[in-house]
């Protein structure tokens, strides 16, 4: 009996070699191989489920107890049958496993022709760096083609989840992880953080914008000239600070409430603190709030903002910027 088991296992392995060989040739579109894999699983899963539930229901009706003291048939088991339902699941699992292995290789082996970008996560947002060194927030622009994304985090563990490209990977402070995707069609694709990272977890959203090559190059040029000619008014300086300090992960600037209050229209507004006192948002309050956010928590929000020690000039620049956004 053992010999037969070994033979069957060997046969299953031989059958699966073509799958492994297919993995050796690079398939360029992991989305396709993942979708195929899902279909295979769905068919197998449905068959397994019906194989269990149909006999279950049938037996319950067929073998209902007819009279009170009736016993079932005395059957201890059947070695042949028991081996059968050991071997068949084994073969199914080996086939699925080999296919999955091939899909995994597609998803993880970066093709040679690719560009490299970098994404740094923080509570709660993503800083994106293009190969040209342009930094954007919660918005990664890439040209059509293969993109390798190097990942890390500033604080807790986050995850860069790209459902449209069937891939995701954790982002860990002090460690470097990666993923890659094939940016096939121009368009916007959602990014989620898929590792619980605190109260702002579900608002930690971003997008990947895939652009035609020429559009992407034009965008890069415009960004570079913008940086070269930037005039450093206090307002512009404040805007840069707000962006580079990653304030916008938690604060909206279009009236939306995220983990923190929206920044537009905030200056001059009266806010209620947790202890019930009312405060007018002025230059002094903004400075205090940035330096020590936990000292005067505003009612209705969590205590998650990190303190930032800036120069007086910088606090004033931020206040100047806030005055401009209504």
């Amino acid at each position: 009996m053992l010999k037969q088991v070994v033979r069957l296992l060997m046969a299953a392995l031989v059958v699966s070699i073509p799958y492994a060989a297919a993995a050796a040739e690079r398939v360029v579109d992991p989305v396709k191989s993942w979708d195929n894999h899902l279909k295979t699983w769905a068919v197998v899963g449905t068959v397994v489920y019906l194989t269990v539930t149909i006999p279950l229901i049938y037996f319950v009706f067929k073998y209902r107890r007819k009279h009170k003291d009736e016993d079932g048939a005395y059957i201890e088991g059947n070695t042949g049958l028991e081996i059968l339902w050991t071997i068949i699941p084994m073969i199914i699992i080996i086939m699925l496993g080999v296919q999955s292995w091939a899909v995994f290789n597609d998803l993880r082996e970066v093709p040679k022709d690719h560009i490299e970008v970098k994404v740094v996560a923080f509570m709660y947002g993503f800083e994106m760096y293009t190969p040209e060194g342009i930094k954007t927030l919660n918005e990664l622009r890439v040209p059509v083609g293969n993109v390798k994304v190097n990942l890390t985090s500033k604080d807790v563990i986050h995850n860069f989840a790209l459902p449209a490209f069937r891939t995701r990977e954790d982002m860990v402070a002090g460690e470097n992880t990666y993923l890659w995707f094939y940016a096939k069609e121009p368009g916007e694709y959602p990014v989620y953080c898929a590792e619980f990272c605190g109260s702002g977890h579900s608002s930690m959203l971003a997008k990947v914008i895939v652009m035609k090559k020429e559009d992407y190059e034009a965008w890069v040029k415009s960004k570079q000239s913008e940086a070269a000619t930037a005039t450093l008014t206090p307002e512009a300086k404040g805007k840069n600070l707000v962006e580079s300090l990653a304030c916008l992960g938690c604060h909206g600037i279009a009236g939306e409430t995220k983990a923190g209050p929206a920044l537009n229209g905030l200056f001059g507004k009266t806010e209620e603190l947790e202890d019930g006192t009312k405060v007018v948002v002025d230059d002094a309050f903004i400075k205090e709030k940035i330096a020590d956010p936990k000292a005067k928590p505003i009612k209705g929000f969590g205590h998650i903002m990190p303190p930032n020690m800036l120069t007086n000039e910088e606090y004033e620049a931020i206040a100047a910027y806030l005055k401009t956004i209504k």
């Binding site: 894999h37 899909v103 995994f104």
Partner: peptide
């Protein structure tokens, strides 16, 4: 299944 899980993990 490793290949499938990457999309549905967490």
């Amino acid at each position: 299944l490793l290949g499938l899980d990457i999309q549905i993990h967490d």
